[in-house]
Write a protein that binds this DNA or RNA. Structure first.
Lengths: 127, 127
DNA sequence: ATACGACTTAAACCATGGTTTAAGTCAACA
DNA sequence: TGTTGACTTAAACCATGGTTTAAGTCGTAT
């Protein structure tokens, strides 16, 4: 199996190594192996798990919740229903958040329109 | 003109009074008037400004940037172009953020599908 | 008159999510 | 053999965005 160092993993996801170490310390990466010298080795499985962590992070799931999820992953198939429920709930929360931002964008668009008109009118008057 | 106390404003936006005071301290609310006793009085104009602050907050604009925007508002019409540019940039950033979250949601959907199938299959086998 | 509720302030406190630092280990190359 | 470069750790540090506390001032209803 192909293993990847922390430096390569960091480059692959374009994040600092320190962030990966921090996530591991927080319990987000329960399966990382080490070589004889104590260096982290990331397997393909590990990289795939990291990808879902990044999806959860990117959708603002708190570290503590992601840890809960990873604990369930580590526990095995008995926790599939818990994980399913968590992902469904999270999806809904994310969708609600996106909707709320989209609404706020409408308020911002009002300003953009007003400012644009104001500037155009000033142009007119300069003529 | 109708004025509103901090308590009424807080209730109207459903946020703690302390948050409003914090925003004022940070320079986000440059126009708040006070009564003889030093209590804040929010005019309709103030409430409208607050609404746009909430839009910017809700779309994750940092406090410092919102302050910059409000400083420009306070400076008057000379800063309309700066404000327009800022709002346009911000809109783009927000749209990019929404797109990125939407992509992450796809990764989460993959998990939802997998878990759902796993559970259905378990159901089948129980029969 | 007084007591209550709504307000005021400055300063201390807090959680979250990292980043930085200092000191050390190891493998490989010159 | 020694010196890079990539890694290791624990602990300190930081920014952001508030929240809480303590002590005090009003206006008003009893």
């Amino acid at each position: 199996m192909k293993y990847v160092t922390i430096g390569e993993a960091a480059a692959r996801w374009n994040i600092p190594e320190s962030t990966i170490r921090y996530y591991e310390k927080k319990g987000l990466l329960p399966f990382i192996e080490r070589d004889e010298a104590g260096r982290r080795l990331f397997s393909e499985r590990q990289m795939a798990l990291f990808e879902i962590i990044l999806c959860l992070k990117n959708t603002q799931m708190p570290i503590g919740d992601i840890k809960q999820y990873m604990d369930w992953v580590a526990q095995g198939d008995d926790t599939v229903d818990l994980r399913l429920e968590m992902m469904k709930k999270h999806k809904q929360a994310v969708q609600a958040h996106i909707d709320s931002m989209t609404e706020s964008l409408a308020g911002i668009d009002v300003k953009i329109d007003r400012y644009t008109n104001q500037i155009n009118q000033r142009e007119e008057e300069r003529k």
